[in-house]
């Protein structure tokens, strides 16, 4: 193993069933159902997946959902806006905790 991440490994995702089939089957059934058209369109779900992929910083997911969003008819501007949503939530999550810092600082200060 030369690197931890190999793009070719993405194609082997289904192979996780080789070590534990019943759970893999359940997972892939669920996964497939999640991305079906529903109250949200398949396109909207793909954009959410792309944003989440960036939030969790999964290279496989970023690869997969860059292709998927393009194949759902999204353009680069929409894709980047989705990533900004992820960035805003991640950034906001850090910043909103600053209220704790502010509380503590005020508590300790004259």
């Amino acid at each position: 193993m030369k690197t931890y991440y190999d793009p070719e490994d993405l194609k082997k995702f289904g192979k996780i069933a080789d070590f534990q089939k019943p759970l893999a089957d359940k997972f892939f059934d669920y996964y497939g159902a999640v991305f079906q058209e529903g109250a949200l369109t398949a396109r909207e779900k793909s954009l959410i997946a792309l944003a989440v992929a960036h939030a969790i910083q999964c290279p496989y997911c970023i690869d997969a959902y860059t292709v998927d969003t393009l194949e759902k008819g999204c353009d680069e501007e929409q894709m980047m806006e989705a990533v900004h949503v992820a960035a805003a939530i991640r950034g906001g999550a850090s910043l909103v905790h600053s209220t704790q810092m502010m509380n503590k600082a005020k508590e300790l200060s004259m």
Partner: peptide, 19 residues
């Protein structure tokens, strides 16, 4: 006519048409 601007497949026709 929509065709992808790159090495990927087109989206579902009806969804693209709506968009």
């Amino acid at each position: 006519v929509y065709n992808p601007a790159g090495a990927f497949l087109p989206a579902a026709q009806s969804a693209l048409e709506d968009q």
